[in-house]
């Protein structure tokens, strides 16, 4: 196998590691593609946030960049009418299930959703879709941090940190469909479980769902 493969993203020719997924190849070369759920170390991509769509020459529909391996000579565009339409809809759908009081959020100005909005010229407010308005109880039982599910985008980054980083196995997904949540066994408060507050999960959260209490606003 050769040491690298040549691909073109947005007219820029880059050399990348063989076997690399397109999303990481782009990000490592400072080409931004929106994403929330992608975890580089994970062998099988989650592919659940549906934000990293790109167009690949020869494929007539947008493809999630986190699921495609780079191939020699691949020609990729990160923007197109089709891509922009899907990303906009996915983004607006996520916002319809997200607490949009940014000024109260500890992640304000350091939020993956804000970054996507800025990069793609999207608005951070409820657009075509009415807010779903799920109600959650705030879990502020740990001493250092809190978990506000109304901001959670279900990317799964905290679960990965909790399992692979901390080996605590406290967080997991539960329920199905629209009721899907990141939660604990029986929905118990974190303080009642074997959480030693390593806070790796807080650091992994790309939005303000898991946050340090000291950074809390209002």
């Amino acid at each position: 196998m050769s040491e690298h493969v040549n691909i073109t993203i947005d007219d820029r020719e880059i050399k990348v590691r063989p076997g690399e997924k397109l999303l990481w190849a782009a990000l490592e070369n400072d080409i931004y593609i929106p994403h929330l759920c992608a975890i580089k170390e994970e062998s099988r991509p989650n592919a659940s946030c549906r934000l990293c769509f790109v167009e690949i020459d020869g494929i007539d529909y947008p493809v999630a960049a986190c699921t495609r391996q780079v191939e020699e000579g691949m020609v990729v565009k990160t923007r197109s009418t089709k891509v922009d339409r899907l990303v906009k809809t996915a983004f607006e759908l996520l916002l319809s299930d997200h607490n949009l009081k940014c000024s109260e959020c500890p992640a304000n100005r350091n939020c993956a959703l804000q970054r996507i909005a800025k990069e793609r010229g999207l608005k951070l407010k409820h657009n075509r879709f009415k807010p779903i308005g799920r109600e959650f109880e705030l879990d502020d039982s740990p001493a250092e941090f809190a978990f506000d599910r109304s901001r959670c985008v279900l990317c799964g980054q905290c679960i990965w940190a909790d399992r692979v980083g901390a080996e605590a196995w406290i967080f997991g997904f539960a329920n199905r469909g629209i009721d899907r949540v990141v939660t604990t066994f029986n929905n118990l408060p974190l303080a009642e479980l074997k959480c030693n507050e390593c806070t790796l999960c807080v650091d992994a959260c790309p939005v303000g769902a898991l946050y340090y209490k000291r950074e809390q606003k209002v």
């Binding site: 196995w169 406290i170 967080f171 997991g172 997904f173 539960a174 329920n175 199905r176 939660t183 604990t184 066994f185 029986n186």
Partner: peptide, 22 residues
């Protein structure tokens, strides 16, 4: 029962909860 099964099979309790709610 979920806790005991988790213990017996050696999987996190939250995963049993996940299955039971899925």
């Amino acid at each position: 029962a979920m806790e005991k099964i988790a213990e017996g099979v050696n999987v996190p309790t939250v995963d049993i909860y996940g299955l039971a709610t899925f």
